[in-house]
Design a binder for these strands. Structure first.
Lengths: 180, 180
DNA sequence: ACGTTATAAAACATTTTGTTCGATTTCTAT
DNA sequence: ATAGAAATCGAACAAAATGTTTTATAACGT
């Protein structure tokens, strides 16, 4: 990828991130984004179809890092094998999310939050079913799984949006206690 | 209130509700709303400042009914007295929400969902703290309360959005099992 | 150093928004 | 029933935002 493209892409991402902390996604105009990012109008549209597209791209971008590139580098995470510890797994994800705190905060805010959480839940669908399956409850599995995923996503949101100073270990233990 | 005002207000609410099931809040134009509602442009703006205002008004409108007018008519709900049963309380709320299923479904959908859930959680803040206070967990009260409220809101969303045919009693028991 | 490709800047058509005004209909109170 | 008040319609309008196109310039990779 061309250096210039990387630069503009990054500039737009950062500008967008900053603006999201200041105001709602729906009230942000393309004009404001390109002013903050200091790029031309046509350049924006060369990279993204619409503002929605920008948001979606940013979501996949972040989660791609958190769930694949970062996590995959560490060897100790084979979800499928028997002795695997769910709480440890959660803690690891929290560490990687913590590293992206700055980028994440804006995305959690009001309008964009809905889209962002949708993506987040999508990625959690890959990790959580194997754990939720072990909980034997009277409620339908479908319900328990959905709730477990939502609860984790909300836990992270509460942590990041509220600037809570808990460590990943603490937060993971609170979460585990809550869903147990 | 003038009959004409009631009629247009209702027509706009219904049109909006129908459109929300078809497409995202942010992609709905005022033009589409007034076409569907069959009212003039100036009439729309006589009732609501903006599309956002319409959404907010509709949210408060619904919850006002569900949490005050409907619930207050029944005598058996004194949250403060000692023998009060949380699960019964939940069940009651679910009954009233069920009556508004049609109106609610659109509001839960993507873009509007974030605003709607915010209002929903706001109303739950009045009911839930007294219950969440009784759960003694290691996690901060603030966290447990937030999670309990979110979990209930998500439970309702899952129920309504997914057209699940569980009775309020069933759903309440699933929820109670989940948070216990 | 060369051809290629991204960007900037400005101009533009289009869409959506929100306002205004006069004519018309519908309400309420008497 | 009727007169006065109030809400609606519809059309026209200004303002703002979107998305596209063009050309010249600058930065890139080989």
């Amino acid at each position: 990828m061309d250096r210039r493209q990387q630069k503009t892409r990054q500039a737009i991402f950062e500008a967008f991130s900053i603006l999201l902390e200041r105001k709602n996604f729906s009230n942000i105009t393309v004009q404001e984004i390109i002013d903050e990012a200091n790029v031309g109008r046509s350049t924006f549209y060369a990279h993204f179809e619409t503002k929605d597209d920008l948001l979606k791209t940013m979501c996949t971008d972040i989660f791609q890092h958190v769930f694949y590139e970062d996590l995959k580098q560490e060897s100790s995470h084979d979800f499928s094998h028997a002795g695997h510890d769910f709480e440890k797994e959660i803690t690891h994800i929290l560490y990687h999310l913590q590293d992206n705190r700055k980028k994440l905060k804006g995305l959690f805010s009001c309008d964009s939050g809905e889209i962002f959480m949708k993506y987040f839940r999508g990625y959690l669908q890959e990790t959580f079913p194997s754990y939720a399956g072990k909980l034997h409850q009277k409620a339908p599995f479908e319900y328990v799984l959905n709730m477990t995923i939502c609860s984790f996503a909300e836990t992270v949101r509460w942590w990041i949006s509220g600037d809570k100073d808990y460590t990943p270990e603490q937060l993971a233990s609170y979460f585990m206690e809550y869903i147990s």
